[in-house]
Amino acid sequence: MSNPVAFLGRTAQYVLLSIAAFVSVFPFFWMVLGATNTSPDIIRGRIAPGTALFDNIGKFLTQIDLPRVLFNSLFIAGVGSALTLIVASMAGYGFEMFRSRVRERVFSLLLLMLSIPFAALMIPLFIMMANLKLINTYQAIILPSIASIFIIFYFRQATKAFPHELRDAARIDGLKEWQIFFYVYMPVMRSTYAAATIIVFMANWNNYLWPLIVLQTNDMFTMTLAIAALNAGYTPDFGVIMVGAIIATLPTLVIFFLLQRRFVEGMLGAVK
């Protein structure tokens, strides 16, 4: 850091990141403060710690069956994400590493499908789930989410950075194609998997529209549905909602904390 240009650059880097971090975190700070305040105080825009935290938590726990709701959400998001990662990364790998004219066409079609708004597909999908007798089940939420075109697309793009020499070397070593995928590709691409896990888990965890339509009984409701229901009514209790919002944010944050170590590893040059 003796070089003044480098010093300036570093300072600019910190200023940029600090502003970005402040702007990003500020609403969360507000949310946490909100959880300690009463609802009328939040509506009045009070930005100071209040004394209603335990009151809000207490009310939250009486209104929501937390263990049950948490289990539903974790089960759906956990199983759904794991299946998506496997199925979508296989497809992304397949589309990129084994190119053919037909599969390119199929892939372009997939991209177009991605652009159809879900609202247009919801009613037919609901009829289909009803015919399969899957209404109000975990499967009804998980099954349509597994083959995420978005994640297939992501893995395909990330695979462009996967060195073909690695595959060629593995082939010479006599590994079968599926072995190459599981034993070479997956470990090498772990920062890609880490990022994808965060994204998929978050999407499943926050999924709202479809679970709302397809889940019918309170014992099946997910965290997101339960919190949205708190906001129902003429006088929603924002203190309780803020408690719910914090609890709903935690699991994704934990996943993020755990997986960002993978990025650090990458930075240390572990990926070669």
Binding site: I123, F126, Q216, A232
Partner: peptide
């Protein structure tokens, strides 16, 4: 069993289900 939804959400749920012609749920 009284199920509470956000008003807009409930209307959407009802409308989607009536539109589908499926009565289950």
């Amino acid at each position: 069993d009284i199920q509470i939804f956000d008003k807009a959400a409930m209307e959407q749920k009802l409308q989607a289900q009536l539109a589908s012609g499926q009565t289950q749920g």
